[in-house]
Amino acid sequence: MNKIIEMKNISKIYRAGEVDVPALKDITVDINKGTFVSFIGPSGSGKTTLLNLIGALDTPTSGILKVDGAETGRLSTKKRAIFRGENIGFIFQDFNLISVLTVYENVEYPLLMVKETPREKRVKIVNALLEKTGMLDQKAKYPSQLSGGQKQRVAVARALTTSPRIVLADEPTANLDHDTAFMVISLMKKMRDESGVTFIFSTHDPKIVGVVDIIHTLEDGIIMKSEEVTHG
C-alpha cells in the first residue's frame, strides 16, 4: 500500500512561559492510503497535537513530516491553508458547524470558500453527500435545530465535500451517546469504503477502536504501541 503520511523523528515542543513542554517526542510512523487509523491514549498524551501536525494546522519542532508527499512544515501559513482546503477534511468533537448557515450551506461552504466550485457541480456534490449521510431531508435546517448525531453527520459530509485525501477526526464521538456514536462511526467507515479516503482519529472511545485497521497508542508524547486490528 502507498504511504500517505510519513513521519520521521517528529517532535513538538511548546513553550509555556520560560519552560519547554514537549508534546511529542521522536515520533516515527507511516500511514497508508485508505486506512482507518486511530491514535489512542489518555488526555495530554499528544493525540490532538499529532492530528494538528498531520492536518497542517501546526508545524513540528523537529523531524520530517510528509503528508501526501508534501512537507507541510516548510509551507507558509497561506500555503498550508490552501493545502488543508485541498487535502484535509476535519471532524471535530464539538461538530463546529457554522451556526448561521443551514445544513446544506455548511456542507457547501468549503466548495464555495476554499475551492470556488461552480454552482452546478456544488449542488451535485452537496446533495450526494447529504444523501449518503442521511441528511438530505434536513438540509434546510440550521445546526441549532439538529441533534448531536445529526450535527456530526453533517460534519462528516462537510469533511468530505472537497474530496480530501485524509479526514482527521478529533474525538468525533465524545459528545455522542452510544447508538449515535456507533451510527456515525459506521457512516465514516462506509465513506472510507466508498471513497478510499484515509480516516485518522484521536480517541479513547472503544467503539472506534473496535472498527479501525491500525491502533497507535500514545503516552506522554511517545508511541508506545502500534497494532494492526484484524476484523473477523
Binding site: A81, R84, G85, G89, F92, N96, M113, R158
Partner: peptide, 16 residues
C-alpha cells in the same frame, strides 16, 4: 473565535 478556527482549519484563506 471557535468558528474562525473552524473556517481557518478547513482552508479558508486569511484574506477571506
Amino acid at each position: 473565535i471557535k468558528e474562525i478556527g473552524t473556517l481557518t482549519a478547513i482552508g479558508t484563506l486569511p484574506g477571506k
